[in-house]
Design a binder for these strands. Sequence first.
DNA 1: GTATTATACTCGGTCTACGAGTAAAATAAC
DNA 2: GTTATTTTACTCGTAGACCGAGTATAATAC
Lengths: 405, 405
Amino acid sequence: MTDRRRASAAVAVLRAVHRQPGIERAAATRKLAMTSGLTTETVARLSGLGLLSEHPVPPTGARGRPTTALGPHPRGPLVAAVVIGHETWRIAVAQLGGTGLAHTQRPHRRDPGEVLTVLAARLRSLRRRYGLRIRAVAVSVPGTVHGNRVAQAANLGWSDVDLSVLWPRDRGARPFLAGNDATFAAVAEARRGSAAGSELMVHLFMEAGLGGAVVEDGRPALGATGTAGEFGHMPFGDPAQPCRCGARGCWNTAIEGAAIARMLNQPPPADEVSYSRQVFAAARASLIPGAPPRAELAVVQAVARSVGTGAAGLANALDPSIITLGGLGRDLLDIAGGQVYPAYLAGLMQFRRTSPPPLLPAHFGGDAPLVGAIEEAFSAVLTDEGLRTWSSNRRPRSRPGRPKT
Amino acid sequence: MTDRRRASAAVAVLRAVHRQPGIERAAATRKLAMTSGLTTETVARLSGLGLLSEHPVPPTGARGRPTTALGPHPRGPLVAAVVIGHETWRIAVAQLGGTGLAHTQRPHRRDPGEVLTVLAARLRSLRRRYGLRIRAVAVSVPGTVHGNRVAQAANLGWSDVDLSVLWPRDRGARPFLAGNDATFAAVAEARRGSAAGSELMVHLFMEAGLGGAVVEDGRPALGATGTAGEFGHMPFGDPAQPCRCGARGCWNTAIEGAAIARMLNQPPPADEVSYSRQVFAAARASLIPGAPPRAELAVVQAVARSVGTGAAGLANALDPSIITLGGLGRDLLDIAGGQVYPAYLAGLMQFRRTSPPPLLPAHFGGDAPLVGAIEEAFSAVLTDEGLRTWSSNRRPRSRPGRPKT
DNA sequence: GTATTATACTCGGTCTACGAGTAAAATAAC
DNA sequence: GTTATTTTACTCGTAGACCGAGTATAATAC
């Protein structure tokens, strides 16, 4: 039968090392409730496979035989992460633990063909350089992603773009994941950011509009078609306001750049992300003592109240242990936390107010989608299946020495 | 290490039989991707343990050695389910597959002490009658449940009531689960109702207010504190309307009995559930051709639009494969489907409209919480741990014959 | 009757993890 | 300095679950 087991001890150890590089053997043994014998076997096997390395730890002064620290192997598995932003693209290669080995960032002109051609070339080059060490690729896009296609990316002006050209399938069938930037950002916060270790978190990612994700034990809720997390299209707004999505009263109509422009009696901006950033900067400037009051501040405060109320509604419905605000949401808390928090508390059901889920700024800024993409790529690698594939790739050269001629 | 495996083959077979009693051995073998040898071993073991029974199947006329059908064992494990409703309580005992062996329903006077005393006595009696065959108990309450306590149950007038008195812990530590009726109703629909087999469903359960749950692969999303699913307290309503929960603009303020009374310029009803039912009945009556138009119909239609719009918002955010409407929601679709569906479609993001998640009436009516409670109780039983407990309980009498004197 | 087909059963082998016992490498006590 | 204590690592026999190849069984088809 197709392997009915959960993560084997080997995968559990790899995941523990990925989550916390440098974790000590003895600590991992306890945390995973393993017997010391199993740890010995497992670590020996994983080291032999080139999956992790052991290092001595500096003496602690405590009694007992010293343990060792577990870290990524210098020739161990890697993942590639690609982030297509509204002005630049980024590529990174990361090893176990999430630390990067390579990183490139370039501006682009939003032409899908052009961008994908350049990125495909970069990925080919990485493939040549790292070979089979690259075990998975994740691509983040600021838009709606269905399978490997970008259905719609408003801020890029893309629609129905096939991303699978970036990573031709090879015999190894290495995982290729495409996803929404807000979802990846949420994963980043849940695994390594403000919500690290949380069982159930909600991330609200505010850039042009509002996106995000529910993340349970580090796994994002992707929905039936992979398009969950469009929180900006819940009817938390004014029912009279039409939204670009075709509905009315979407939360986004109280938050996104076009909404801010409307409230400021300005024409709809061409680049909403940059526009919102400017308005936020202006609002922030008027906070400086003695600075003249500006209309931008009042608008940002209105947005803040809307975000607070909506966050409370999500807390009521989903009962998360924590909510994080990313992207411009971090600035929002900074500039108008005095509006966000009261609105949040007021929107919570009475019984939730005694210990409300913390509403915190995200830990990551612009790196969030990249970190999340790396995490998701590793999630696809650190499985029993991934372990099998890695082992079988290495088996041919298991006997060290020159290849026979 | 503490058993790292997923459900063993034995548990997988038990779950398959529970899901589909009478499933054929050969079909189960294929469905679970088992080898025939493993099936032989597993079925023999489970039959021997008194967990399931084999029956010949009527000849199909097809070639090949005939298979057998798998069903619950006549002395196999049972669960008890208790449903406390706003006017009556119910208790049922069910065997593998969910079919009932016993069922009682009685009216009550909403006095917590009185109700719990009677229910505890009934459960003691069931315990005497069925002994250790009862492996778990689930209790459904129309209110907010934290652990084993009812935090608040508005329609019962209960607050801070401890349910654990119903089921004293014994050595076996048999699972005792308390939960919200809407959550159990959602599970019922997801496992055996309109959304049977769905990967990701959202259930909206409308009784006094709106509750429900997101159910993924049959498992309800309970939230960090077990109080997820309070969809009625998302701000989908008029921001000016105060809600009993302490917030403003809750969806409930457009839907619940008090809201309906307000819209009809009537005083707030004492029993909202009954009141809403009456209004719905009046609205339904005015649909009969030739009947005089009634204000109730317009109000129910307004409620319908609100439900449709909100359901769309949830679909946008959560991307379910199906949404079901239970409780009064079934009547709502019946009476005012012409308002629900257009509002639902209009509220969906453009790209979801080409194949929107079906919005269907629930399959179960008043039985939904009972069926869901039985399902959840069995979920707690059909695990490796549950299997171990059952086996160890039987081990003493493993050698058939009279007990030694 | 014999062939074909679908299913069930048998049994040796593998893999994972347990658990009890032993060894190693540090500090603490005398 | 030697011995005791503590913590961790390693060894090895055993148990359990499942695979997989081969065999047996019970039906229909020819």
